[in-house]
Write a protein that binds this DNA or RNA. Structure first.
Lengths: 197, 197
DNA sequence: TACATTACCAAGCAATTGCTTGGTTGGGAT
DNA sequence: ATCCCAACCAAGCAATTGCTTGGTAATGTA
């Protein structure tokens, strides 16, 4: 197993931990599991990190900074409302493709991690995410390009859930690329599955 | 092996356990948590049940028997294809309303529980669920009432995910009834959010 | 040569876990 | 009056948990 020259040992260990946290859950992954996967003893992990919590913390912070930066760029950009919404969906699926473990951890463990003070920033991220989607949807409605007879909150949840839950089954190299999935999901979301003559 | 004792106390304890499993996860809920919530000592649970696994087993089996029975009724019924699909969505939201804890446990813990032999029937239920939705979708396509340009597998996942993930935020007595949520979700699914003149 | 740094090992501790064992209580049937 | 039995308690065991401690080996750098 050749290792990327650029990856420090620290980043390697974080990637291993992320894979296990995503697959088995945070609480259900022991420091011995992580150490075994890395080929070292559990105690040796504490040369690199303070605690198991610090590992998942670093994993989540890194990817969230990147993701929310992209959302901000979209909103601040000059695309038309519909294109902005489409772009946000595509970016989300790109993130699922590029940061599958991190997204899975955020999806599955956020509720549990929020019981610790040090992870209270996750609640802020959720609030931020809601604002992004509501802003994009309202923009489309104001421009007359989206239906105005739907409950905005329900529509937001519909989109959010549909996009992120795909991380539970999407695998790179599967029968659909993330681009193709985004395209079809957008088609259903915008046009519906009903046949229009 | 303790057998049915006072059916009511047994059901009480199962309901308490289900609430905790749904809220905190199976592995992350201790037998002491369950006992505390029931106002007894942890050892006393073993008068009613063999193990923690037996509890979650009984919880899942009971509700799945009911749910899949309803799906079978719909497919065997004489509604037209579109109405069958709509009915299946409505029944699913009714189930989320009526068996919130059980659905949440199935959604969140199935992957973990499947690592134990005794829960292999959960994989069979997943297969069964996929067949139900694919049958309903194919029926609509054959009847010319649903679009035939979408990937069937992706459409199935879209519907499945959208319906069941709602259990993560739906609360009875919230601002939307499960009937209202089903209605709006169906509207988006069938017609899309795009504004059609 | 002397020292520093990085990455790890070996051993184990305190807390928590699921579960076991033997015993107690109180209401209902005989 | 006696007995039964469902429901529980009190105590604790063995395994697993996150994490600590003190040390070692290899690779630098002065």
């Amino acid at each position: 197993m050749p290792e990327p020259v650029s990856a420090t040992r620290r980043e390697e260990l974080l990637a291993i931990a992320a894979g296990l946290f995503a697959e088995k859950g945070f609480k259900n992954t022991t420091v011995r599991d992580i150490a075994d996967a890395a080929g070292i003893l559990s105690g040796s992990l504490y040369h690199h990190f303070d605690s198991k919590e610090s590992m998942v913390d670093e994993i989540l912070q890194t990817f969230q900074t990147e993701l929310f930066g992209q959302y901000e760029d979209i909103i601040a950009g000059d695309l038309d409302p519909l294109a902005k919404l489409e772009r946000a969906v595509v970016v989300s699926f790109e993130t699922i493709d590029k940061h599958r473990d991190e997204v899975a951890i955020f999806q599955n463990e956020a509720a549990y991690l929020l019981t610790f003070d040090r992870f209270s920033y996750l609640a802020e991220r959720n609030r931020q995410s809601r604002e992004v989607w509501l802003t994009l949807l309202q923009g489309g409605i104001d421009a007359g390009v989206l239906r105005d007879d739907l409950d905005l909150e329900l529509t937001y949840r519909f989109i959010r859930d549909t996009v992120w839950v795909a991380v539970s089954w999407y695998r790179p190299g599967g029968r659909h690329t993330h681009t193709e999935i985004a395209r079809q999901y957008l088609s259903i979301l915008l046009e519906g599955i009903h046949h229009h003559a």
